[in-house]
Nucleic acid binder design. Structure first.
Lengths: 238, 238
DNA sequence: AAAATAGTGTCTGTTAGACAGTATCAG
DNA sequence: CTGATACTGTCTAACAGACACTATTTT
């Protein structure tokens, strides 16, 4: 038994303080004209990660910035009407800026706010939901929020990333203290912003830490677990 | 371009207070006679998760107990000398007991302690390392440790799971308090153990919580990140 | 009684959340 | 000056780690 293998990309960024997703409009059947995640076929001698990097490059023109990691693999027998297609989904986190470019099988690529999404082709709605949940969870215990920021950023920019991804307002003073006291999260550059309103802000780069100790928890310690509550990181089915 | 798709299983359990892995000896080339993770080909109309469940059933005879989740997909072009094989790895956590059974392409299946592993075929050493790291991480923020336990278990058994997976001793009194105070982690059954040495222990079942709030952190809050990994608190014994 | 295991209580330093206050810019 | 944003400090309740103590069984 043989399979077709594709990669699909959940590409996230922060645009106008809102978590946004890169979507394409399909130019060919099936689902012609529908929105979908960018992606494509894995080539004959190509590693899966290389295929994801290539597709990301083709769709966004993005270089080495940002973050890319495997999200999960989706292979339900009837997920693609063309036959048995298994897709390996990747999650990309990028700083804002790159203007999307139309790919070969994509009529157009555009950023869409996560809060108001159109219907998606295939099982891409599920893949996208898994990707956003992964991003939300990893912001807690890794310095991955910096992947949404330009090379130099302020604490306020970093806080806006957390607020956009978690869709929750955060206390800026406590946030500032927590980021400063978490070893290796950010490294001061000595430079500051200028020309903005208010006091200039110090600029930082991402620090050397791979994990945040202690983590930045989304949830207050006095929260309760109950039916309907959906808190914390999520994985796939049992 | 077409691919062969397989599932491989990282099956973990606690045996004799040690984290252990289910390995098979390959009966056919390539890597004939070497140790490997159990696994096999995905069938024509079979979902990936169904294939993992089937392989787990074939290797261990295990039913509905335990936990099974997708771990990751490995598809480096040269990972299998037979051609282009992509494998979707699954992580299974089981209570101790099931005697391994020999599968069709496996000469023998056996539990091996994670602390002393033989060399593994293909890229299975990497897959196994990823699986154990996933398990270690998930024990922090999910009640997944209960998947290693029988349907009814004591707090001490649950603590031994944490100690075995994290390879770290834990203070039994603080552990007991933390488990009891985390809402939805465990549910008392009213029954107790009997016939053992010492005071009988209350028996629990897994509670309704999907996530631990607050999490059970491996690492002390005053740990520092630096060159040279530093995980886990220092030993302490009464 | 002694040993062993289960479970509770207490003390203390640290931390998270809430919120007041100070610093430095533009206009 | 006012307004705006950046940053620091303080108070308090809750929590984590360390460790003493009580409870209930077997031998």
């Amino acid at each position: 038994m043989t399979f077709t293998v594709t990669v699909d990309l959940v590409v996230l960024t922060i645009r106008d303080a809102a978590l946004s997703v890169l979507l394409i409009r399909r130019a060919v059947p099936p689902f012609e004209g529908d929105y979908a995640l960018p992606g494509g076929f894995v080539l004959e001698h190509e590693d899966l990660l290389d295929a994801a990097v290539r597709e990301l490059q083709e769709e966004t023109g993005v270089g080495g910035a940002g973050h890319l990691e495997q999200l999960g693999t989706y292979g339900t027998p009837d997920r693609d009407p063309r036959g048995r297609v298994v897709t390996v989904a990747y999650l990309a986190l990028l700083p804002d800026a790159p203007a999307p470019q139309a790919g070969s099988d994509a009529a157009a690529a555009e950023w869409r706010p996560f809060a108001s999404l159109p219907p998606l082709a295939f099982d891409h709605a599920r893949i996208l939901a898994d990707g956003v949940e992964r991003a939300r969870a990893k912001l807690e215990y890794s310095p991955l929020a910096t992947a949404f920021c330009p090379p130099e950023f302020t604490i306020a920019e970093l806080r806006q990333v957390y607020e956009a991804v978690w869709a929750t307002p955060l206390d800026l003073r406590n946030f500032h203290r927590k980021v400063s006291k978490t070893p290796g999260f950010v490294t001061p550059t000595g430079r500051t912003t200028a020309g903005e309103r208010g006091r200039p802000a110090r600029l930082f780069t991402r620090g050397p830490a791979e994990f945040l100790v202690p983590p930045m928890l989304r949830i207050g310690p006095d929260d309760h677990i109950g039916p309907g509550h959906h808190i914390g990181p999520e994985d796939h089915e049992d």
